Computed example of a mutant assay.
Amino acid sequence: MNLRSLRYFVTIVELSGISRAARALHIAQPALTQHVAALEEKLKVQLLLRTVNGVVPTDAGMALYRNARQILRQIDQTVLEVQAQGDQPRGKVSIGMPTAVAYVLTVPLLGEIRRRYPEIELHIIENMSGILLELLSSGRLDMSFLYDGGRQAALKSFKATKVLDEELVYVSAAKEVVPSVSLQDLVDVDWVLPAAPGGTRQIIDTGFARLGRTPRVVAELSSAKALKGAILSGYGASILPPAIIMEDVARGEMRAASFTDVDLSRPLSLCVPANVPLSPAGQRVHDTAVEVVQMLIDPRVWPTVD
């Protein structure tokens, strides 16, 4: 095996097709097919299955993909670390953010990285926590913010740095300002809730269960934009991370209130793979991200239970 073949194979798996990978890599498709055949001959296993929609890895192919990603990442990081000695840290760094985190952190973090480390190219990927966990596990992210301790640091596969405990709040389009509410007393409320089985919804369902309540759910929505639109249209109230509705609250369009009878909080951690050290640029981004989060903790910007 050689590094070129491994890079080609990783690209094929990620694009789910040899022809798509050939176009992305700017090489002829027959040459790319020969590289795959050489890998299969060397390893004595079939690595890819052809389907009508492209190719998918076999179990052996997925094992090769996971390890090849780690090998290639370590090589790239070694090159960057050598180049960074005695100079400004440089290179690409990818960081994942759940939607609620991206709402408040993206612009401040980008600004700090540009100011402190102009040679670092920052890639911010916003998605649901479950998808970010998969991307981090497969080596496609250098680091990611994850809730619930990174799901217990993904059974010790990650190192997690806890940055805060975030409180979920009651959100409505009501005009009266109410600083706190009792979930038990919200008997007649129509609820527009984040869709299951996400982490936010799990916390909400657990809170209702502890009080012996079954919420009257009129809609489940996966998009933060859709949730806010449904609330503003009067279809119901919701329970959301405060960071995504603080601007609406400041404009007087929404009201947010803490719960007095149930704890709906979740820890947020910045997670990195335990077995792959960060590059110098990656370490700078990690440390800066933790610092910026602490700077943003404020009742009007990023309310927490800390």
Rank of each mutant, 00 (worst) to 15 (best):
V305P: 00
L43I: 00
V305T: 13
R201Q: 03
R23C: 09
F9Q: 03
Q34K: 11
I245N: 13
L221Y: 06
S19H: 13
L72R: 04
S16E: 15
R201S: 02
L232F: 00
L296S: 05
H26A: 15
A28M: 05
M295K: 05
S265C: 08
S5M: 07
Q70D: 11
M254K: 07
V189Y: 04
T200Q: 12
K228G: 08
A209K: 01
D148Q: 06
Q34L: 10
A84G: 05
T99I: 09
Q184P: 01
V262K: 04
T288N: 10
I297E: 04
V192H: 08
R50C: 12
H26R: 14
V36L: 14
L3E: 08
A21W: 00
K92G: 03
G149W: 14
W191M: 10
L3V: 01
V272G: 08
H26D: 13
V189P: 01
N2K: 00
G252I: 04
Y147K: 09
D287Q: 07
V177C: 05
H35N: 15
F259C: 10
N67D: 11
K156W: 03
I297H: 10
P197Q: 10
T161D: 15
L268Y: 02
Q283T: 07
E81R: 04
A250D: 10
V169Y: 11
E121W: 11
P118C: 15
V192W: 14
K159W: 00
K228Y: 06
K92H: 09
I245D: 10
V13S: 15
K228E: 13
G54K: 14
Q29E: 14
A68F: 11
V13C: 01
Q77W: 10
C271A: 11
T161M: 12
P108C: 04
G139D: 05
E14I: 03
V276Q: 02
I244W: 01
R213G: 08
V218S: 06
G199E: 03
S269R: 03
L186P: 01
G212A: 08
M295Y: 06
I244L: 13
